[in-house]
Design a protein around this nucleic acid. Structure first.
Lengths: 98, 98
DNA sequence: TAAAAGTACTTTGTAATTCAAAGTTAGTTT
DNA sequence: AAACTAACTTTGAATTACAAAGTACTTTTA
């Protein structure tokens, strides 16, 4: 048997980043405020986790306006989609003992 | 929609503890050394994660002898089994957006 | 029989991570 | 002008993770 945890992605050790990704994978885009309310986080905490994901190029930021209000939305990248799927695969394999 | 991450178990944020549990759930018992080799960890690091799981009463320790050598093995508890399953359920729900 | 090695830790110290709170910038509504 | 909202950044503290070294005890090897 080989080390079952080495295929897990360290970025997804965090429940928050895992939560963000699982939202982004089924939603075309989501705003900062929606994420904040959904995950019940402070601004700073959310911003820093989003930053980690952006640094990894797992998501990209889109700034726009809704009427006259600024609106920041987040979109998963292809790289992010693959990384997330690979992580879930690794998890599944580990759990099923494959 | 409700907060998708709140049902995740904080003890299982750690890839190492997740790995230990996924091994224990399919193996009646496993020794310290087997875990150490499988997960490629130092003694201290493994011991401390095992201690966290023992404190949570997710596993119990069994000391015995193999011939004349001491042998410490770990066994999952019912509580651990349930907690792990609940965590996996929460993960699955989160990922599938249920 | 002295030295080396193995098992299973504990202790120590450092580095990394997480998070809340407060501060910031820029625009908006009252 | 004052308050408010959005989306941050900065700061600092607490927690967690980890390697390395030390420990106690037994066993194997030279």
């Amino acid at each position: 048997m080989k080390n079952p945890i080495e295929a897990l992605n360290k970025i997804f050790d965090s429940r928050i980043r895992l939560g963000v990704m699982s939202i982004l994978i089924v939603n075309d885009s989501i705003s900062f405020n929606e994420l904040k309310q959904l995950l019940e986080l402070t601004d700073g905490n959310l911003a820093s986790h989003l930053n980690t994901l952006e640094q990894a190029e797992y998501l990209k930021v889109q700034k726009s306006f809704i009427g006259k209000k600024t609106n920041t939305t987040y979109i998963i990248t292809e790289l992010g989609r693959h990384a997330f799927k690979a992580h879930l695969d690794a998890l599944e394999k580990m759990i099923k003992g494959i």
